[in-house]
Each structure stands twice: as structure tokens, then as C-alpha cells.
């Protein structure tokens, strides 16, 4: 009886070992060929804003890919256009090309403002270099709420040169 029990346990251990061998996880390989492109947000980042028309009450997002500005529009009139510039810098280890920006607007902003953001400097930035983005905001209609600070967010994109 004891011998049979020992044989059963030994066979069980062998079965467990074999199942473990079968189920053991493997690692995989990475294949990367061709042009390396980064997700273009973090390495190409915003610098600082230059407030040409003295409209900005706050700005944040330096060294990130999203830049948010606040401006007091309570004294604006419909049709009024204001402008400011922001630098974009290449904080990565590779040259960047095809720099582009996009205004991330909410429905409320779209209802009342027209916002354009475009690269007015170079579209290619060498390592450590900068370019300039000009933002233009036009009030199309008076906001219906009583918020005096309008907030706008901009995202920068770029392709990395391999």
C-alpha cells in the first residue's frame, strides 16, 4: 500500500512537471525595420508663450505636448481677434520634421470662438532647436455663461527623422 502510494505521488509529480514544461510562457522578439517614428507628442514639446496682445491670464504645458492657455474675454467684442505665439522645441535625440499643431477645442469654445494655430517658423527642428507657432483667436459670439476665462488647448505633432 505504501509503495503504491509513493508510486502515485511520483507519477503525479512527473505529470505536474510535464504540464509545467508545456505551459511555460515564452518571450517574444521585437522586429523593427525602416523609419523609426516616435509617438510624436512627448519629445517635441511646447516652450513658453509670448503674449503679443497681453491677453493671457495663465498658460501651462511647458515641456509637454499639450499647451493650455487661459484668457479673459469679458471685454472682447464680437469679431475681435487676438494673437499670441508659443515656441515648440525638440527635446529628443533625433531631428524632427513635419511639425504640426492642432487646436483641441470643446463644443463651447467652437460655438463662440474661431481658433487657429499654425507653425509660422520652420517645419523641421534639429535636436535642441525650436520653431514658432502662432495662435489666433477670434470671438464669433458672446459666451452665454458668465465665465470670464476662456481656455484653449493645443497639441503639437512631429515625425522623427530616422
Amino acid at each position: 500500500m505504501k509503495n503504491r502510494r509513493n508510486v502515485v505521488i511520483a507519477l503525479l509529480l512527473i505529470a505536474v512537471l510535464c504540464v509545467g514544461i508545456g505551459y511555460a510562457a515564452l518571450n517574444d522578439t521585437i522586429d523593427f525595420t525602416g523609419k523609426i517614428s516616435y509617438t510624436p507628442d512627448f519629445q517635441i514639446v511646447w516652450g513658453t508663450a509670448t503674449d503679443l496682445d497681453s491677453i493671457l491670464t495663465n498658460s501651462e504645458g511647458t515641456d509637454t505636448d499639450k499647451f493650455t492657455v487661459s484668457m479673459n474675454t469679458s471685454e472682447w467684442v464680437v469679431g475681435e481677434t487676438k494673437t499670441f505665439t508659443v515656441t515648440v522645441k525638440n527635446a529628443s535625440r533625433y531631428d524632427a520634421e513635419n511639425v504640426a499643431v492642432k487646436a483641441l477645442t470643446t463644443t463651447a469654445v467652437e460655438d463662440n470662438y474661431t481658433v487657429t494655430a499654425e507653425v509660422t517658423g520652420a517645419y523641421t527642428i534639429a535636436v535642441g532647436g525650436t520653431t514658432t507657432v502662432t495662435v489666433t483667436v477670434t470671438m464669433d459670439s458672446y459666451p452665454t455663461d458668465t465665465v470670464t476665462n476662456a481656455e484653449f488647448t493645443f497639441q503639437v505633432y512631429a515625425d522623427q527623422v530616422a
Binding site: 505551459y23 511555460a24 515564452l26
Partner: peptide
């Protein structure tokens, strides 16, 4: 081997 606990094992392939 089960890969469900704090310590896990992977075979290098």
C-alpha cells in the same frame, strides 16, 4: 509557471 502570482517564470526563446 502559472504566471498568476507575484513571482513568475518565462522561458527565453
Amino acid at each position: 509557471v502559472s504566471m498568476q502570482f507575484q513571482y513568475k517564470l518565462i522561458v527565453v526563446a
